[in-house]
Simulated assay, not measured.
Amino acid sequence: MSQTQSPSAPRLAGRTAIVTGGSRGIGAAVARRLAADGARVAVVYRSNSNEANAVVESIRKTGAEAIAVQADVADAASVNTMVTTVREAFGAIDILINNAGILEGQPVGEIDQTSFDAQFRTNAFSVILVTQAVLPHVPARGGHIVNVSSSLVYRPRAGLAVYAASKAAVDGLTHAFAVELGPRNITVNAVAPALTRTDMTAPIPDEVKDRMRESTPLGRLAEPEDIADAIAFLASDDARWVTGRTLKTDGGFI
């Protein structure tokens, strides 16, 4: 699966990557990091076109290639159109980062089907849809898929049962897809971040953030770049012998 390159070539030179939820937070950091490693990057967004275009512009200023593509990752037709656009722009697709997600908090007595369906469709079913759409365009040498799970799978918090369950589904899909796609030299892994400083987590009360910080051996919260660096490893041939695993990118949260 390894591809011979000159010693000075970026490790993702010649590769194409799709990053869903790439307009902000962890997704934006991942898009920038993969581009810095030499990949051509498709920044997929649902509604934040200005933010997505800003990420693309920041990548292009470095001399790397990037495009912004709108898609609803929970809708099959929209996903297929997005993948076709990326294919036409960049050719074969080597890397898929399934990062798009939503979080809605509800105590157990208030969980409703609308919120349940929305979180499972966006957080879990989208992993299926986007992976299915990308697979026909992965080259014969193989590729890498990285899904974004959550530390809440392992340490759920009150009011976030459905979100944690949807991310547990992501873990299950990750490990099962790895078994199925291994013969095609496609690795499938996940990262499970704890609380990360993004606009999605900005509304969380400071006292909760303080407790998280105090429970982390490194004494701080994660930055999006911390998660992006781990994803970049799993998206490269440096991780060619790692598949079917979820990496806890939680700073040792205890």
Rank of each mutant, 00 (worst) to 15 (best):
T122M: 07
F90E: 05
K167A: 03
S49H: 13
P136D: 14
R87N: 09
V138I: 15
G105N: 05
I204F: 06
S126W: 02
L103N: 11
A66Q: 04
M82I: 09
G109E: 15
V56N: 06
I26R: 01
T246S: 14
E223R: 11
R33V: 12
V148T: 15
D72I: 13
A68D: 12
V41F: 03
A28Q: 07
G38W: 10
T4K: 02
T196M: 04
A66T: 10
E225T: 15
L34Y: 04
G22Y: 00
V179D: 01
M212I: 13
L96K: 01
P224N: 06
A239K: 01
T84M: 11
I111W: 03
L12E: 03
A232F: 07
F120D: 04
A28R: 08
S6H: 00
D237Y: 00
A164V: 11
T20Q: 01
M82Q: 12
V55C: 03
A228V: 11
A165E: 11
Q5C: 09
A42I: 11
V170G: 00
D237K: 13
A76K: 09
L96H: 03
L173D: 01
L34T: 13
A29W: 07
G109P: 02
V30G: 03
G91C: 05
L221Q: 14
P107M: 08
A42L: 05
P203I: 08
A29M: 10
R15I: 01
F120V: 09
A124N: 07
I128E: 07
E223T: 08
P205W: 06
W241E: 02
S23P: 06
A39P: 02
A52E: 05
S6T: 09
F177G: 01
A64V: 05
K167E: 07
G251V: 00
V127M: 03
I128K: 01
S49Q: 15
V242Y: 00
V138M: 13
A165M: 15
S78V: 14
A92Y: 01
A133T: 02
V208D: 06
N98M: 08
V41C: 10
A235Y: 05
S8W: 00
F90T: 10
E65M: 11
A66V: 10
A165D: 08
A202I: 02
L103I: 12
T198E: 08
M200V: 10
E104Y: 02
N189V: 00
N185F: 08
S47G: 12
E214A: 15
Y45P: 12
D75C: 15
A164P: 12
R213D: 09
T174S: 13
L181H: 07
H137L: 15
G172Q: 06
N185E: 12
R141G: 02
G14H: 05
G159K: 07
D37S: 06
T196C: 06
S115I: 12
V55A: 04
V162S: 04
A161G: 15
P10E: 10
V148S: 08
R197S: 12
A31N: 10
T84K: 14
G38D: 11
I145N: 03
A36P: 02
F253Q: 10
G105T: 04
I111M: 04
H144K: 15
N50T: 14
P7E: 02
E65G: 06
N98D: 06
G182W: 00
A71E: 08
R184D: 12
D112K: 06
E51P: 05
V44F: 00
R32V: 13
I204Y: 03
N147A: 15
R46W: 01
P217M: 14
G219W: 10
D94Y: 13
A77I: 13
S6W: 00
Q106H: 13
